Amino acid sequence: VSKLITEALSVSQERVGMSLVALKKALAAAGYDVEKNNSRIKLSLKSLVNKGILVQTRGTGASGSFKLS
């Protein structure tokens, strides 16, 4: 899941990052079952932020906008 998230964010052209909703849409378009794996998406977002791979530009927790650091 982390690999899919970083790939989706690297393609994004948004300056402020990608919102959680837009990220879920991009994952669904890539063929990932978002409804079934919603908790996995949130956990991997939090772990990527803690590792310093992603930066959360808006919001708290697993909601808001994210971009690559």
Score class of each variant (00 low, 15 high):
Val1Ser: 02
Val1Met: 07
Val1Ala: 09
Val1Leu: 02
Val1Gln: 00
Val1Lys: 03
Val1Ile: 13
Val1Pro: 14
Ser2Pro: 02
Ser2Asn: 14
Ser2Phe: 04
Lys3Trp: 01
Lys3Met: 01
Lys3Val: 03
Lys3Ile: 01
Lys3Asn: 08
Leu4Val: 05
Leu4Trp: 02
Leu4Phe: 08
Leu4Ser: 13
Ile5Cys: 03
Ile5Arg: 00
Ile5Thr: 00
Ile5Pro: 00
Thr6Trp: 01
Thr6His: 11
Thr6Cys: 07
Thr6Ala: 02
Thr6Ile: 10
Thr6Ser: 07
Glu7His: 08
Glu7Trp: 05
Glu7Met: 01
Glu7Asn: 09
Glu7Gly: 00
Glu7Arg: 13
Glu7Leu: 00
Ala8Leu: 05
Ala8Pro: 00
Ala8Lys: 03
Ala8Met: 07
Ala8Tyr: 04
Ala8Glu: 01
Ala8Val: 09
Ala8Asp: 00
Ala8Arg: 04
Ala8His: 04
Leu9Cys: 03
Leu9Arg: 14
Leu9Tyr: 09
Leu9Met: 08
Leu9Lys: 07
Leu9Ser: 01
Leu9Gln: 01
Leu9Ile: 14
Leu9Thr: 13
Ser10Met: 07
Ser10Gly: 13
Ser10Gln: 07
Ser10Asn: 12
Ser10Phe: 01
Ser10Cys: 03
Ser10Asp: 12
Val11Glu: 09
Val11Ile: 07
Val11Cys: 10
Val11Leu: 08
Val11Tyr: 12
Ser12Val: 15
Ser12Cys: 13
Ser12Thr: 04
Ser12Trp: 03
Ser12Tyr: 02
Ser12Leu: 13
Gln13Thr: 08
Gln13Ser: 06
Glu14Lys: 03
Glu14Trp: 01
Glu14Leu: 01
Glu14Phe: 00
Glu14Val: 01
Glu14His: 04
Glu14Arg: 01
Glu14Tyr: 01
Glu14Ile: 01
Arg15Cys: 06
Arg15Gly: 08
Arg15Leu: 02
Arg15Val: 03
Arg15Glu: 14
Arg15Ala: 07
Gly17Asp: 03
Gly17Tyr: 03
Gly17Asn: 13
Gly17Arg: 12
Gly17Val: 09
Gly17Leu: 02
Gly17Trp: 02
Met18Phe: 02
Met18Thr: 12
Met18Trp: 04
Met18Asp: 04
Ser19Glu: 02
Ser19Phe: 11
Ser19Cys: 08
Ser19His: 05
Ser19Gln: 07
Ser19Thr: 11
Ser19Tyr: 04
Leu20Asn: 01
Leu20Val: 11
Leu20Glu: 11
Leu20Met: 12
Leu20Ala: 06
Leu20Lys: 06
Leu20His: 02
Leu20Gly: 03
Leu20Gln: 02
Val21Thr: 15
Val21Cys: 07
Val21Trp: 07
Val21Asn: 15
Val21Ile: 11
Val21Phe: 08
Ala22Thr: 05
Ala22Met: 09
Ala22Asn: 05
Leu23Ser: 00
Leu23Pro: 00
Leu23Val: 10
Leu23Asp: 00
Lys24Met: 05
Lys24Thr: 05
Lys24Tyr: 07
Lys24Cys: 01
Lys24Ser: 01
Lys24Gln: 05
Lys24Pro: 00
Lys25Cys: 01
Lys25Ser: 06
Lys25Gly: 06
Lys25Leu: 00
Lys25Met: 01
Lys25His: 04
Lys25Thr: 04
Lys25Asn: 07
Lys25Gln: 10
Lys25Ala: 06
Ala26Tyr: 10
Ala26Pro: 00
Ala26Asp: 00
Ala26Gln: 04
Ala26Arg: 03
Leu27Tyr: 01
Leu27Phe: 06
Leu27Asn: 00
Ala28Ile: 11
Ala28Tyr: 09
Ala28Phe: 06
Ala28Met: 10
Ala29Arg: 13
Ala29Cys: 10
Ala29Ser: 12
Ala30Asp: 04
Ala30Pro: 04
Ala30Gly: 07
Ala30Leu: 06
Ala30Gln: 08
Ala30Lys: 12
Gly31Leu: 05
Gly31Asn: 04
Gly31Tyr: 11
Gly31Cys: 05
Gly31Ser: 05
Gly31Pro: 03
Gly31Ala: 06
Gly31Trp: 03
Gly31Met: 06
Tyr32Thr: 07
Tyr32Phe: 10
Tyr32Gln: 09
Tyr32Met: 15
Tyr32Ile: 13
Tyr32His: 11
Tyr32Arg: 11
Tyr32Cys: 03
Asp33Arg: 13
Asp33Trp: 15
Asp33His: 15
Asp33Leu: 12
Asp33Phe: 15
Asp33Cys: 05
Asp33Ile: 09
Val34Tyr: 02
Val34Ile: 09
Val34Gly: 05
Val34Ala: 07
Val34Trp: 05
Lys36Trp: 01
Lys36Gln: 08
Lys36Cys: 02
Asn37Val: 07
Asn37Thr: 02
Asn37Arg: 14
Asn38Lys: 09
Asn38Pro: 07
Asn38Ala: 15
Asn38Ile: 07
Asn38Leu: 14
Asn38Gln: 11
Asn38Tyr: 10
Ser39Ala: 13
Ser39Trp: 02
Ser39Cys: 01
Ser39Ile: 00
Arg40Val: 03
Arg40Met: 06
Arg40Leu: 10
Arg40Tyr: 05
Arg40Ala: 14
Arg40Ser: 03
Ile41Pro: 03
Ile41Thr: 02
Ile41Glu: 00
Ile41Trp: 09
Ile41Cys: 03
Ile41Gly: 03
Ile41Lys: 02
Lys42Tyr: 08
Lys42Gln: 09
Lys42His: 08
Lys42Ser: 09
Leu43Ser: 13
Leu43His: 13
Leu43Arg: 14
Leu43Met: 11
Leu43Val: 01
Ser44Gln: 10
Ser44Arg: 07
Ser44Val: 15
Ser44Cys: 15
Ser44Lys: 14
Ser44Glu: 15
Ser44Phe: 05
Leu45Glu: 00
Leu45Arg: 00
Leu45Val: 08
Leu45Gly: 02
Leu45Ala: 01
Leu45Cys: 03
Leu45Ser: 01
Lys46Ser: 04
Lys46Ile: 08
Lys46Met: 06
Lys46Gln: 06
Lys46Arg: 11
Lys46His: 04
Ser47Cys: 14
Ser47Trp: 08
Ser47Pro: 02
Ser47Glu: 15
Ser47Gly: 02
Ser47Ala: 11
Ser47Phe: 03
Ser47Lys: 07
Leu48Pro: 00
Leu48His: 00
Leu48Tyr: 01
Leu48Ala: 01
Leu48Gly: 00
Leu48Thr: 01
Val49His: 03
Val49Ala: 04
Val49Asn: 02
Val49Met: 14
Val49Tyr: 08
Val49Lys: 07
Val49Ser: 03
Val49Thr: 06
Val49Leu: 14
Asn50Thr: 13
Asn50Pro: 10
Asn50Trp: 00
Asn50Gln: 14
Asn50Asp: 09
Lys51Asp: 04
Lys51Phe: 02
Lys51Pro: 04
Gly52Val: 06
Gly52Asn: 06
Gly52Trp: 02
Ile53His: 10
Ile53Val: 12
Ile53Arg: 09
Ile53Glu: 13
Ile53Met: 11
Leu54Ser: 11
Leu54Met: 14
Leu54Ala: 05
Leu54Tyr: 04
Leu54Gln: 14
Leu54Pro: 10
Leu54Val: 15
Leu54Arg: 15
Val55His: 10
Val55Trp: 05
Val55Thr: 14
Val55Arg: 15
Val55Asn: 09
Val55Gly: 14
Val55Asp: 05
Val55Glu: 13
Val55Pro: 07
Val55Gln: 08
Val55Met: 13
Gln56Arg: 12
Gln56Pro: 12
Gln56Ala: 15
Gln56Thr: 14
Gln56His: 15
Thr57His: 13
Thr57Tyr: 08
Thr57Asn: 11
Thr57Ala: 13
Thr57Pro: 11
Thr57Ser: 12
Thr57Gly: 09
Thr57Glu: 15
Thr57Met: 11
Thr57Trp: 05
Arg58Asn: 15
Arg58His: 11
Arg58Ala: 14
Arg58Phe: 09
Arg58Ile: 10
Arg58Cys: 09
Gly59Arg: 08
Gly59Glu: 10
Gly59Ile: 15
Gly59Trp: 08
Gly59Val: 10
Gly59Leu: 11
Gly59His: 08
Gly59Met: 08
Thr60Asn: 12
Thr60Val: 12
Thr60Ala: 14
Thr60Glu: 12
Thr60Asp: 15
Thr60Gln: 12
Thr60Leu: 09
Gly61His: 12
Gly61Thr: 11
Gly61Val: 07
Gly61Ile: 07
Ala62His: 11
Ala62Gln: 13
Ala62Asn: 14
Ala62Lys: 14
Ser63Ile: 11
Ser63Asp: 13
Ser63Thr: 13
Ser63Tyr: 06
Ser63Glu: 15
Ser63Gln: 14
Ser63Phe: 12
Ser63Ala: 12
Ser63Leu: 13
Gly64Arg: 12
Gly64Phe: 11
Gly64Pro: 15
Gly64Asn: 04
Ser65Gln: 14
Ser65Asn: 13
Ser65Pro: 10
Ser65Glu: 15
Phe66Ile: 05
Phe66Leu: 10
Phe66Gly: 08
Phe66Glu: 12
Phe66Thr: 08
Phe66Gln: 10
Lys67Gln: 10
Lys67Cys: 10
Lys67Asp: 07
Lys67Ile: 07
Leu68Val: 06
Leu68Gly: 11
Leu68Cys: 06
Leu68Arg: 08
Leu68Thr: 11
Leu68Tyr: 07
Leu68Trp: 09
Ser69Asn: 11
Ser69Ala: 14
Ser69Trp: 15
Ser69Gly: 06
Ser69Glu: 15
Ser69Gln: 09
Ser69Pro: 09
Ser69Ile: 08
Ser69Met: 07
Ser69Phe: 11
